[in-house]
Structure formats: structure tokens, C-alpha cells
């Protein structure tokens, strides 16, 4: 069903934009070809890659912390990525983009590792303390980012990173980093069994001969890399990495080897749907996808919470 939704959404996305061109005539019309290859296709791919990678990152994070109510946008990962990016922008503005992303990823990984270290000390039965801790931590790191940005007069930068992700700036040459994010998510799929076992507890993982610590580190690295790529290229998208894993787990369960491809497809479809909605509502103007996602996502999240209050 998800795959069936992806194809028409992709087509609709390729057909939607401010320039009025007929993309089906692209082969004979050089202007339509230009719009398609430089703007429409990159944007559509960027949305698909972001949606897939961010949702997979959410599923991994939920397996690592064994809690359903977290996503890369609620545990301080995005804020830590922005902090790393801000520090590079201040101290090494000439650093090439891959260097910036590396620093940002490392910073995101440290922030997420801090979150994991914090929640390991919480009483295991208090499942709601985990998301609350995440929100507090992201608030603290976020305010550090805002303070530094304020002092350095870089507020505009961080607004695009953290507040509302959007894809209107995506053209060819400005989104390709997202392929790496998607590749990292794909790599995680190869280790899907390990994450599914880790989700059963450190004891079970150790008993089956896995090193819980190294599986966790690998997962954190993927989550951090994906978040850093997304924050640097399009800005953070709220709720996506939180709700898509919940919906898929509800239907297919947590056997990640089977569930992760579906998580990726569903995440891509949902984000593309929201992006299209944002592009069409006030056409030819746009509402950032982060805003649309925030609206749609919070609704879905409330529904999930209400339906299933007893499970973590």
C-alpha cells in the first residue's frame, strides 16, 4: 500500500512547482528538462531520502533506548548537530562542507550518547521519564545553541537548521549529501537483526554473543549521521522519526529486518505527502514541510498515544 502511494506522490511532486512547465515534454523542451533535472527531481529525491533516512533513524533510536516515545528530533540529536555546525561556522568557516558535516555528526553522536547515558540511570518502569528527559536535554542544548548564535549574530542560520525544515531551497548540487544519509540507513538495515536483539535487552544480547555496546555505538553513529545530514541540508523535520516507526511497529512488529524497508518507504511517502500539501495549499507560494509535518505529525502522535497508553 505504501509503495502504491509512493509512485503517484513522486509523479505529483515532479509535476508541482512555481514554474509552469510540462515535465512530460521534457525530452523535446529544453526548458522543461532544465526545470526537471535542476529543481523538480532533486527536490523530490531530497524529500524521499530525508523521509526514509529520518524514519529509519527513529526506529533505530527507539530500539536502542527501548522506548517508543522518542525520535531524533526529541532527544537532543538535532540540537547537538546544530551546535557542532555552529561551532564550525564560528571557528573554521572555510572548512569544506564534508568537514562541517563530520563535525556536526560527531557532535550529534556525543549529544545522543549523553541522552542514552542519562536514561540508563532512570528506573526502567518509568517509561514516560525517557521522552521527558529527551525533551529537557534538547531544550538545554538548544538554548546553548541559541545563546551562542545570538552572541555571534547567527540567529538566521540556526532558524533554518532547527526550527522548520523545508525543501524549497533544494536544487541539483545542494542535496546530494542526503544520499549518504540514506546509505547510512541502508547500512543499518544490514545489521537489522542485531538491533532487534539489542531491543530485547543487554542481557539477551550478551547471551546471544553480541556486544551490546558496539551495536549501540553503531546505531548511535547512524542516527547522528542521518540527523546531521538532514539538519545541514534541509533543517530538522519534527515528528517524522517518532510516528512512522510507531505505526509500522503496530502493524508489522519489531523484526527490523522486515520492518525497516517498510519504515523507510512509509517515511518517504508521508514526508512527500506533507511536502506536496505545503506546496499546493497556497500555490505558487509554499508552507515549509516542517510546519505541515508538525501539524499532521502531532495529530497522528496524539492518536497513537490515546490508542495505546499502557505500552512503552
Amino acid at each position: 500500500m505504501t509503495l502504491a502511494a509512493l509512485a503517484p506522490l513522486t509523479l505529483a511532486s515532479l509535476m508541482t512547482g512555481a514554474a509552469s512547465v510540462d515535465i512530460f515534454a521534457a525530452l523535446s523542451d529544453p526548458r522543461a528538462m532544465l526545470v526537471l533535472m535542476e529543481s523538480r527531481l532533486p527536490r523530490t529525491l531530497a524529500v524521499l531520502l530525508t523521509g526514509a533516512a529520518l524514519s529509519v533513524a527513529g526506529m533505530l533510536l527507539q530500539a536502542i533506548v527501548r522506548n517508543r516515545f522518542v525520535g531524533p528530533d526529541t532527544v537532543g540529536t538535532a540540537e547537538s548537530a546544530a551546535l557542532g555546525l555552529l561551532v564550525v561556522t564560528l571557528f573554521a568557516p572555510a572548512m569544506p562542507i564534508w568537514g562541517k558535516i563530520l563535525v556536526s555528526s560527531l557532535s550529534a553522536m556525543l549529544g545522543t550518547a549523553l541522552f542514552v547515558a542519562l536514561i540508563r540511570r532512570l528506573p526502567p518502569r518509568e517509561i514516560m521519564l525517557v521522552p521527558i528527559t529527551g525533551i529537557v536535554l534538547s531544550g538545554v542544548i538548544g538554548s546553548v545553541v541559541v545563546y551562542i548564535a545570538w552572541q555571534a549574530d547567527l540567529m538566521q542560520y540556526i532558524t533554518t537548521w532547527l526550527m522548520v525544515g523545508e525543501f524549497s531551497g533544494v536544487i541539483a548540487g545542494r542535496y546530494e549529501m542526503l544520499w549518504i544519509a540514506a546509505a547510512a540507513a541502508g547500512l543499518a538495515w544490514l545489521a537489522a537483526d542485531r538491533f532487534a536483539i539489542l531491543a530485547l535487552g543487554d542481557g539477551v544480547a550478551t547471551g546471544l554473543g553480541l556486544s551490546a555496546t558496539s551495536v549501540m555505538r553503531f546505531g548511535l553513529a547512524v542516527v547522528a549521521l542521518v540527523s546531521a545530514m538532514v539538519v545541514t541540508t534541509v533543517g530538522m523535520i519534527p515528528f517524522l522519526g517518532l510516528i512512522v516507526p510507531n505505526i509500522v511497529s503496530r502493524i508489522m512488529g519489531d523484526n527490523l529486518r522486515r520492518a525497516l524497508p517498510m519504515v523507510a518507504a512509509a517515511g518517504a511517502a508521508l514526508l512527500l505527502g506533507c511536502d506536496l500539501l505545503g506546496r499546493l495549499m497556497r500555490h505558487p507560494f509554499e508552507i515549509p514541510v516542517g510546519t505541515v509535518m508538525g501539524f499532521v505529525g502531532s495529530g497522528i502522535f496524539l492518536y497513537l498515544l490515546y490508542r495505546r497508553p499502557a505500552h512503552g
Binding site: R68, I197, L200, G201, G207, G209, L210, G253, D254
Partner: peptide, 26 residues
């Protein structure tokens, strides 16, 4: 050796056959 600790509440939604299948993972 196979070791089974005391189980705490786990939120993972695995099918029983998948859980038992992980016993063969080593």
C-alpha cells in the same frame, strides 16, 4: 552456554517465532 536472566517488561513487538528464532543467532 545459553543464559536466561530474569525478564523485565520489554516493549519490543516480536512474534514468538521470531523471538525463538533469535536463539539460533549464535
Amino acid at each position: 552456554m545459553a543464559v536466561l536472566g530474569q525478564q523485565t517488561a520489554i516493549s519490543s513487538r516480536l512474534r514468538l517465532s521470531e523471538l525463538v528464532g533469535f536463539g539460533r543467532w549464535p
